[in-house]
Nucleic acid binder design. Structure first.
Lengths: 213, 213
DNA sequence: CATGAAATGAGGGTAGCTCTCAAAATCTAC
DNA sequence: GTAGATTTTGAGAGCTACCCTCATTTCATG
């Protein structure tokens, strides 16, 4: 019924017949809440949309909404691509320069995302620049991604994952990449996200083009 | 009365006799709210401390607390050092390598902060690693600092302040430096913050020590 | 089908935050 | 100093995100 459901069809219950009825219902409820939320936000904006309205449209109780998502922001944002990325990173040849591995993995992640649900990718970015709470949550979630990055960085560089150097490096990457996303949204999604990422990685690798000493 | 008031004495009303009674009272109220908040947090922790308690101890109404600080996190965090830093950055010699200028300014900011109120610097870092809402607000506030950094970066490099490159660079710096602060707190404030900053700037300038290609 | 486990709904409670409006404090002029 | 304009404050109602508990329903399994 909802166009977004189609876009997210990889995760729809129909594709997982091996699961019990309970699990399939849970997935359906999750999707119903997400779809209701995105629809309501599109109609009235984020702040005007209350949990109660979401619950009504998704035909569940407000308690259930909170059982599935810890906060309102999480309804919009939560997704779990981190393990995928980490796995992909580990699969890269050991001798490959770190930045190249990273570039490759991010390109792949972008492809998956945009193929799967380009609409949502934009809506999220849009919310991130409009609603402080959403942006905060996004930063927080990217920091978690950064923590996973540390693992990979540590493996490659021989540094301890908890070392200051690994942490600073991972976090500066994370911050830079988040900024790409915001930049893209603020400029009306005109640019090619992939191209922006490449430019950002160049900056992170070599510093500013015409800058400093 | 409160030891923190002494530490923040540069800003106390007594030092600004040229201001009218109204302005002096406002400053006093601000300090009363801050002091009450820090004291209560020390006693009971952040979450257990309510606005009402803060208002009671500061001898103002809850409404007044919100008039002075938009959110509870802001009571703990708000400070205005950005203009100072920007000014100091601009005062550096034009030929100086960018990273050196930055290093110099951050050192200076650290000196000012630790001389003025070392206790608070630690309490904040402590809260930042314990309370997600505070950390979020801190990130947000550092992003604002990052936006000022863009100005300075643009002036030095000739890039547009709104260019992707300037933005990514500023944000990755911001993220990296925030991580230093968190690292320092997580390791019990044992390390010399200044030394950590230097190590972080080295990473940001040259990449990881023994890493990649 | 019966028993146990899991998911749900209903409802009450807390606290952050907003808004309004009238009272009190401060400033300005005469 | 006193009157009047302006600013600051307090009181309190209202909204909503979020938490917790408990009874009811829904699914899984022998």
């Amino acid at each position: 019924m909802n166009p977004m459901t189609a876009a997210r069809s990889r995760f729809s219950p129909a594709d997982r017949p091996q699961l019990g009825l309970r699990e399939r219902k849970k997935i359906k409820t999750r999707e119903a809440i997400r779809d209701a939320t995105y629809a309501l936000i599109k109609e009235q904006g984020y702040d005007a949309t209350t949990i109660e309205q979401i619950a009504d449209r998704a035909e569940v109780s407000p308690s259930t909404v909170f059982r599935y998502f810890p906060t309102k922001e999480d309804i919009v944002l939560t997704d779990e691509y981190d393990p995928l990325m980490l796995e992909e990173l580990r699969a890269r040849p050991a001798g490959e320069p770190w930045i190249d591995s990273l570039r490759h993995v991010i390109h792949m992640a972008l492809d998956v995302l945009t193929e799967e649900d380009p609409e949502t990718v934009r809506t999220r970015a849009h919310l991130a620049i409009q609603v402080p709470a959403v942006r905060s949550r996004m930063v927080e979630s990217m920091s978690e991604t950064g923590r996973m990055l540390r693992e990979a960085i540590a493996e490659r560089s021989g540094l301890a994952p908890d070392s200051l150097e690994a942490r600073v490096y991972a976090m500066s990457l994370t911050g830079g990449l988040l900024e790409v996303y915001l930049y893209w949204a603020e400029n009306g999604f005109q640019d090619d996200l992939r191209g922006l990422v490449d430019r950002a990685l160049d900056v992170l690798e070599h510093g500013l083009p015409a800058a400093n000493s």
